[in-house]
Computed example of a mutant assay.
Amino acid sequence: MTLLSNIKAFSKTRLSWGLLLLSVIFFELCALFFQHVMQLAPCVMCIYERVAMFGIGGAALIGIINPKNTLIRWLGLGAWGASSIKGLTLSLEHVDYQFNPSPFKTCDLFVTFPDWLH
């Protein structure tokens, strides 16, 4: 079997989609630990990146429904790809804010919303 056929076969199992969902939950819990235990306030870009991670989690939930069904698996893969691309563009923009500081492009703290939201 080739590598691509192995990846295709693995994508037809619930284990692959479950691992994706577990990794999203792990990273979201890490972000909440940094925010609430270590008292590191998130900025707006951090919150947007978390939302993109929730999109990946939603894609994992779509894929875990019936991974052997081609339509559902492709819907999950499409949602995963769209959320991943959006998360990557947000992350690259966030890194650009940090490495190339400018008074016109800033990473404002998330202070204008209610406390329960962040």
Rank of each mutant, 00 (worst) to 15 (best):
D96R: 15
G63L: 08
S11R: 03
L71D: 15
T112P: 03
L4K: 12
W74V: 07
H118M: 11
I65W: 12
A59R: 02
P101N: 04
F26Q: 09
P103S: 00
H94Y: 10
G58Y: 09
Q98R: 14
L75C: 10
A52P: 03
A60M: 04
S16V: 02
I62Q: 02
L75N: 07
M53N: 11
C46T: 05
H36Q: 14
C43Y: 08
K86Q: 13
N100C: 06
S23R: 00
E93R: 09
P114T: 03
A31F: 13
T13I: 02
M38I: 14
L75W: 09
L4E: 11
K68R: 15
I64G: 00
L20M: 10
V95P: 01
L77C: 06
M1F: 11
I64H: 02
L77K: 06
N66I: 04
N100K: 13
F113R: 13
I62W: 02
P103W: 00
C43M: 08
A79G: 05
F27Q: 07
S91C: 12
F113K: 14
I25E: 06
F113H: 11
K105Q: 09
T13M: 01
G58V: 06
F27T: 04
K86N: 15
D108L: 10
A79P: 01
F54G: 06
D96C: 06
M45R: 07
I65R: 11
P67G: 05
Q35Y: 12
E49P: 00
L75R: 04
D115Y: 05
D115L: 13
W74M: 13
G18T: 07
N66T: 07
A9L: 10
L22Y: 08
F27N: 06
L15H: 09
Q39M: 13
G76K: 01
I7E: 00
A9N: 11
Q35E: 15
A60Q: 02
G18S: 11
T89D: 08
G18C: 02
S23A: 14
L109K: 08
R14A: 11
M45P: 09
D115G: 12
T2S: 15
G87Q: 09
P101Q: 07
L29M: 15
L40E: 15
L109P: 06
L61T: 04
P67I: 02
T70M: 12
G63H: 04
T89I: 14
L3N: 01
D108T: 09
Y48T: 12
A9Y: 10
R14P: 02
L40V: 14
F34L: 13
H94K: 10
I7W: 02
T70D: 13
L15N: 08
R50L: 09
S91A: 15
L75D: 00
C43F: 11
